[in-house]
Amino acid sequence: MDASDETMSFTDPPAWPHAEADLLHEEPDWQAVACLDFPRDRWLGYLRGYAKAAEIIVDEVMSTGRGQDTLIYPFAMCWRHYVELHLKTLIELASVYLDEPHELVRSHSIEVLWRRARPLLERSFPGDDQAELDNTERVLFQLHGMDPSSEGFRYPVRNSGDATLDGVTRIHIRHFHNVMVGIAGVLDAADTGIREMTDRKHEMAGYNLYGG
Results as ranks from 00 to 15, higher is better:
138 R>D: 01
77 M>I: 00
122 E>V: 13
63 S>F: 03
70 T>V: 15
115 R>E: 12
25 H>F: 07
173 I>H: 09
74 P>H: 12
17 P>I: 04
68 Q>H: 12
131 A>L: 14
105 V>W: 11
20 E>T: 12
124 S>V: 05
86 H>G: 00
24 L>E: 06
94 A>F: 04
24 L>I: 00
25 H>M: 08
119 P>Q: 02
2 D>W: 11
164 T>W: 11
203 E>H: 14
175 H>N: 04
24 L>G: 02
97 Y>H: 14
120 L>Y: 14
80 R>Q: 06
51 A>S: 14
76 A>R: 05
128 D>F: 09
202 H>K: 05
101 P>F: 08
9 S>D: 05
48 R>C: 07
41 D>Q: 08
30 W>S: 03
193 G>L: 07
9 S>R: 09
48 R>Q: 09
165 L>C: 05
39 P>A: 09
153 F>S: 01
132 E>W: 13
205 A>L: 15
49 G>S: 14
113 L>W: 14
145 G>W: 12
94 A>L: 02
157 V>N: 04
32 A>F: 15
57 I>R: 02
67 G>K: 12
190 A>S: 13
67 G>A: 11
5 D>K: 01
91 I>W: 07
115 R>M: 13
139 V>C: 01
193 G>E: 01
84 E>W: 03
70 T>N: 05
111 E>W: 07
200 R>P: 01
40 R>Y: 11
33 V>S: 05
207 Y>R: 10
142 Q>K: 12
93 L>P: 00
182 G>A: 05
104 L>F: 15
128 D>I: 05
72 I>N: 01
196 E>N: 07
122 E>I: 14
161 G>Q: 06
198 T>Y: 13
63 S>E: 15
137 E>N: 03
205 A>N: 08
56 I>V: 13
48 R>K: 10
14 P>F: 05
154 R>T: 03
174 R>D: 14
21 A>N: 01
